[in-house]
């Protein structure tokens, strides 16, 4: 009986051909390099950022010549001297740091029960509701949300309207530091939940059941089992919220009424309001430095959390 020309399906032969072509283009001896090849686009992207940072660093070493509105030829540290000797920048930097720490702490406290309920609830309906409520804000940009708060918290807004029903005169709920922090917490909370949920999912429910069956109360189980095992998620969520809050622009600009600037607002002012790119660049580098120090401090104290992808120090 003659051997059929079609012993293998056509699709298999196509796959063989593709594999053959691939082995010519990328021989098997190169296989160890495949992960690096896949890493290449990300590395190139980061390299672009690094090149940008180098240019910003170079720009920060030039002052603005106000007779020509061009950068000076000479290299100087004058921009940095001015920043460190000006109270305004210390105030703004401190406000940004303190605000980001407060927002991070509040977000972690609020995100934990939300995430826990979302991953542990036996009700599919409740889980879906929590997921929808989590993702819905992502469809609304930060600026739109901030303007939404202007409508809700304004002197003639919903909140003051409700206060008016019980005879309370309108009070200023906007354009102050708490309003900025409130807006940031509302904006950052979904990020924290998203970072925490996978870490909580990874905690086996059986461990909580075992603790319960050994007589531990819900509180003791939470303190001694859930919280320590959730630490990587807390650290990861904290890092993301901390860095995003530290560099935020829109919430301080819109909800702060012009008097609660964060460092990003000061950078904007230098680049766009006073045309002083050197000063703006110097402030940018300082922000990057402060943010990196804060992240480094968290890494040192708590490890990298979920960002270490399971290779955190034990």
């Amino acid at each position: 009986m003659p051997t059929s020309k079609h012993a293998y399906p056509f699709r298999w032969r196509v796959m063989d051909a593709i594999e053959g072509a691939a082995s010519i283009l990328w021989p098997s001896r190169f296989s160890r390099g495949l992960p690096y090849l896949m890493l290449l686009p990300a590395v190139l992207l980061v390299m672009l950022l690094v090149i940008g940072m180098i240019q910003i660093a170079e720009s920060s070493a030039h002052t603005l010549d106000r007779t020509t509105f061009l950068a000076s030829e000479d290299y100087t540290g004058a921009n940095y001297s001015q920043i460190f000797s000006t109270g305004l920048y210390w105030t703004v930097l401190w406000r940004s740091l303190l605000g980001s720490v407060i927002v991070t702490a509040i977000c972690l406290v609020f995100a934990f029960p939300y995430s826990y309920l979302m991953v542990r609830t036996p009700s599919a309906l409740l889980r879906k509701f929590l997921l929808i409520a989590l993702f819905l804000p992502f469809f609304i940009g930060q600026v739109v949300r901030a303007y939404g708060w202007l409508i809700i918290l304004g002197n003639q807004g919903v909140a003051n309207g409700l206060l008016g029903l019980v005879g309370i005169e309108p009070i200023r709920l906007l354009y102050n530091y708490p309003a900025v922090l409130f807006g940031l917490v509302q904006y950052m909370l979904p990020f924290a939940v998203l970072m925490l949920a996978p870490a909580l999912t990874a905690i086996p429910e059986e461990m909580e059941s075992a603790a319960n069956s050994l007589g531990a109360s819900w509180w003791r189980t939470f303190i001694h089992i859930v919280l320590p095992l959730a630490k990587p998620g807390l650290v990861g969520a904290g890092l993301v919220v901390l860095t995003l809050s530290l560099t935020d622009f829109a919430m301080p600009a819109i909800l702060g009424g012009g008097s609660q600037d964060f460092i990003a607002n000061a950078i904007y002012d230098q680049f766009f309001r006073t045309s002083d790119q050197g000063m703006g660049a110097a402030l940018t580098l300082i922000l990057v430095g402060v943010g990196s120090l804060a992240v480094g401090l968290v890494f040192t104290l708590f490890g990298a959390g979920t960002l270490a992808m399971g290779r955190d120090k034990k």
Partner: peptide
């Protein structure tokens, strides 16, 4: 104004942000 505007802006900001 062109020469000093950024100084005035900074001074105003320093007062209002303080």
């Amino acid at each position: 104004q062109v020469e000093h505007e950024s100084d005035w802006f900074s001074q105003f900001k320093a007062i209002m942000q303080g």
